[in-house]
Write a protein that binds this DNA or RNA. Structure first.
Lengths: 240, 240
DNA sequence: TCAATTAGTGCATAAATAACACTAAAAACC
DNA sequence: GGTTTTTAGTGTTATTTATGCACTAATTGA
């Protein structure tokens, strides 16, 4: 419950923390998982890279704030967005008390464009295993947690499809799983599992390449079966 | 990242949301899963039941605030505590903008005592399937989410032990699983799984009852094997 | 035409799961 | 004091699911 007392309207701002929303934006670029970072212009952590974010406005919900930040940084709408965790250590920001609600966003491989806002000196996609270290604030921790969540949810949700374009081959999908999980998967077992799950819709399209042409598939959004999709490759990677 | 601009210190409090921490406190009472609720004394939602919580102080982290709330309501320390989700819809509190960071707490069966604070007219444990409806604010939603998280984490963590006293029998443990999952489990399979997992430590103690006396066990905190404990009964109950 | 390359299938075996029948040790009943 | 009831705990087997790996398929390039 909220405290019973109405917040006194003459409360000074010193008794209220500031609240920001930070968005960890992932995308697949050149078949590699990337994260979007911005370079800070001013103190504190001037010149260091950080996860994009900003203060929440009083007339928007947390998710609306996250979508706004996302669009300001990437110009992209309608992406997968999920709340990650709320970080609220007392001294995570040297200026004053700031509580940050972190979100994860997944941007389709074919959709990303980025904009440099005037509040940062640079914006860039980094491969997740090559992010500059350390990041500003407690953002190393936030990014690590985001990756861990991404890995664990990959196994029991259809989250991976959010990173793919409309049409894709089954082996491309397998490649995403390998990218994010960081391990090789068996081709035969992957085909079997993904087919059995019934979440793919065959299309008449093929794509030619070096060897045998490959069939293209599409993610079936409202599949008839109502049983939940579970795609677990290993037992021991779920978040604790 | 945080916004680049230092928060202007003359910012009025109208531009900052208030932040509360709400704690969904579960315990096992008479072998049944209960949740602690407080009855509100004042407007809004006067007389209705709510999840205990309160405003965060500037000199405490989110988790510290949750522990403080928990101790104020139950007098209990050293309990399992985990962040659930942050609720921030614009109009969830009719008075002003309030963002609430919700936590889950698990209190051991033998430990609960409750105190009525002077800010609420009553405090009570409710069986989770008999909570008064509707709760104040968006607390129905918070409670539903907490239960869902509890169920899903039960299967791949050792969370259930947090609800048991120091010594317990294997069938008592099975009972907790059944309580929280809401389904009967096979005795033989339960014994096999829990033994194989190697997370229990045999004690010399027995407890006598109606039939054959039962052996008492203790949860092994730092078990030698470093592989993660996984206790999954069904595939399809994980959170999405 | 034949090696190289990428796509996709089949299958034997191993491991996990589920259902259920069985034995064990005490108290309650008569 | 024997028999029934109750709770504890073990064993066994059929079925399902996971895993590793060998195989076939269709194309390009030499």
């Amino acid at each position: 419950m909220q405290d019973e007392r109405p917040v006194p309207y003459n409360l000074s701002q010193y008794s209220l923390p500031a609240v920001t929303v930070d968005v960890v934006i992932f995308s697949l670029i050149n078949r590699t998982l990337h994260v979007l970072l911005v370079q800070r212009k001013r103190w504190p952590f001037e010149g260091q890279w950080a996860i994009p974010g900003g203060f929440i406005r009083l007339d928007e919900s947390l998710e609306e704030a996250a979508r706004r930040e996302l669009e300001e940084e990437t110009g992209v709408r309608d992406v997968y967005l999920e709340q990650l965790y709320t970080f609220g250590d007392v001294h995570r920001d040297p200026r004053h008390r700031v509580i940050s609600v972190a979100y994860i966003a997944l941007v389709r491989a074919d959709a990303q464009t980025i904009r440099v806002s005037d509040e940062s000196s640079d914006v860039r996609w980094f491969p997740v295993d090559q992010v500059p270290s350390p990041l500003a604030f407690d953002h190393d921790q936030i990014l690590a947690y985001a990756l861990s969540r991404l890995r664990s949810k990959l196994e029991y949700t259809t989250l991976a499809f959010q990173l793919l374009p409309e049409l894709f081959s089954i082996l491309e999908l397998k490649h995403i799983y390998e990218q994010i999980l960081g391990e090789k998967l068996d081709k035969g077992n992957f085909y079997r599992k993904i087919k059995e799950a019934g979440i793919l819709e065959e299309t008449p399209y093929m794509r030619e390449g070096r060897g045998r042409p490959t069939r293209l598939w599409r993610f079936r959004r409202n599949r008839p079966s109502d049983k939940q999709f579970v795609f677990r490759w290993r037992e021991d990677r779920r978040e604790s």
